[in-house]
Design a protein around this nucleic acid. Structure first.
Lengths: 327, 327
DNA sequence: GACCCTAGCTAAACCGGTTTATCTGCGGCT
DNA sequence: AGCCGCAGATAAACCGGTTTAGCTAGGGTC
């Protein structure tokens, strides 16, 4: 029942523990004949190295970490992260250590702990803040990390990102080409870096714009929409920072008797089944592939490669029934 | 930068490593005064035990495992699992080791490995098969495990489940009370235990029923619906095994000119935002709470408690616009 | 033939904990 | 005084690997 250890192999092959370690890891110091014999014995015994023991003596932990800061209950609605995780997994042979915490400080504490204990070889950093302390932390710890979704370059870390600025610009240009002047944006959390980027791009390209803060929930989307549609100079188009808020907004419009897309055009950021069934025009990106790309980047830096910045393909605008020419 | 180890504490407190270990773990063998001094030094040094080292000497690994067998790409659409994981996390202080694999054999291999390496203290078992080899495996390994969502009792394992049989019966009775006689069921994977249970309950309570196999994808839902609606004796109601298939079915009905709910009633199993916006009557359960309950059960058996079977609250039928009296 | 190098291997230390066996005083009992 | 028992602590072994220092034998060089 017990798994064979390196000691068992050493005994069976008639060599020392050290020699077995060298042989198994393809390092020099043992003859080819000995190596072959050791490998033979190891496979016939069904040997699997213990990553726990290995991690203890400062080698690979065979796992990477991801910490999500979020009220746990809110997590389930964010299909984005699940897609992302699924994509990550597709490119990793190691396991993912996942933990959901409720505060930023707990997150930092956890990263430090995982690193101190060699529980992970590297980590993903998501939800990048405008001036994020984690970037500095990773550098000082020397913990390999990949910034996921934070546009631009971050200290000495690798980064995988989509160009939110260009994407937002393209959305606004599209709406302008339909004749829209007064355009509103229902934004996400203002503490997040990509929110700021989208804000900047929005303000830079729009003629007559207004930004309302939101927090990705249906309630926020509904409230913002209600406020916008009942205001004296109501916009002819609204761009939402995620699918949930957009769908909620569409419902509010319907309940107020505002016809979409005749009186109001709606664009959602992340595409999803929700947008598909709601026939909402959405900015679609392949989150699964994005996660896979992030995983590849992390595997690379864990392997000692120099950190690089990878720009993901530009999100693509999928036009459905929720956008049209201004009436 | 390096975390203090037990050795550092021993030196600072002027005692031996062993004494520190005893003191920190609240075990007898040290005097109260020494214990107090050790705890004092430990906290002032910001000591955190290394779970890696601890796991090596056959104690807690401070993590539990979950393996999902699935084509990675399909994972992102299953909000169910993300809700479940979120719920689990809410009740666990330890981390979750998550890995997605593509075959049952890889899953079993992984469970064995994790156990052999002390990487996890226990595991969740989801997607229980009709006769599942994992149940036997866990018993023989002595690996604490909780069966999640597999109705009934399983060997020596703890189990957390919802009564699918009763739930299906209630759905059928509801439809019958509306006058429906010929009712169809678009089922999930027939290899899964809960699919069989639902099949049984469906057949036992229905007057004139038909079951079509599906696999939870929109495509399968659409195809099954198309077949049913174009058949000579088409049903007046369809019960789908998940939300994705139900929504796809509703679209097919619309495209065929079949009016919902006048000519066709639709019920979805798991409720979701998708059902809410599609105004589909759905069998709603609190997946988050379900995950939390599963986590509590696992924490208990890991802690040495006797495995128990916990029955979750019965899913509740949320009636929306997709069901009505037979015309 | 003396000397040096190096390939190939072993023994031992180490990672950071837990656990067991052993040692040291001290108090109580006869 | 002599003996036992026990609390309190320590040293050392152990978990399963990696890594380093050290040993040995064989070949090449002068």
């Amino acid at each position: 029942m017990k798994r064979p250890t390196i000691k068992d192999i050493a005994a069976a092959a008639g060599v020392s523990k050290g020699a077995v370690s060298l042989a198994l890891n393809g390092r020099s110091g043992v003859s080819e004949s000995t190596r072959a014999r050791v490998l033979d014995v190891a496979s016939s015994l069904g040997y699997r190295p213990s990553s726990t023991a290995r991690a203890l003596s400062s080698a690979s932990a065979d796992a990477v970490g991801l910490v999500l800061v979020r009220p746990p209950r809110a997590l389930g609605d964010e299909a984005f992260f699940f897609q992302l995780i699924a994509g990550m997994q597709s490119e990793m042979s190691s396991a993912l250590l996942l933990q959901v915490v409720s505060s930023r400080s707990a997150e930092i504490e956890l990263y430090q702990r995982w690193w101190a204990e060699h529980r992970v070889d590297g980590v993903f950093l998501v939800d990048l803040l405008v001036s994020d302390p984690r970037v500095e932390l990773m550098s000082s710890l020397g913990l390999p990390a990949v910034v996921v979704g934070g546009a631009g370059h971050h200290g000495s870390l690798a980064s995988v990102w989509a160009d939110d600025y260009a994407a937002m610009t393209s959305v606004v240009l599209y709406l302008k080409s339909l004749g829209h002047r007064r355009i509103a944006r229902v934004a996400g959390l203002s503490s997040l870096l990509h929110t700021v980027r989208r804000d900047q791009a929005f303000l830079a390209s729009v003629v007559d714009g207004v930004i309302v803060a939101g927090d990705y929930t249906a309630e926020a989307g509904a409230a913002a929409t209600r406020a916008l549609l009942t205001s004296p100079d109501r916009p002819s188009a609204i761009v939402y920072d995620n699918d949930v808020m957009a769908v909620a907004g569409a419902e509010v419009a319907a309940s107020l008797g505002v016809s979409v897309p005749r009186e109001l055009s709606i664009v959602a950021w992340d595409d999803s089944v929700l947008c598909q069934h709601g026939r909402l025009t959405a900015l679609s990106r392949d989150t699964f592939a994005f996660g896979a790309r992030a995983a590849r980047a992390l595997v690379a830096v864990v392997g000692g490669a120099l950190p690089t910045d990878v720009e993901d393909v530009l999100p693509e605008l999928v036009v459905r029934g929720s956008t049209g020419p201004v009436s």
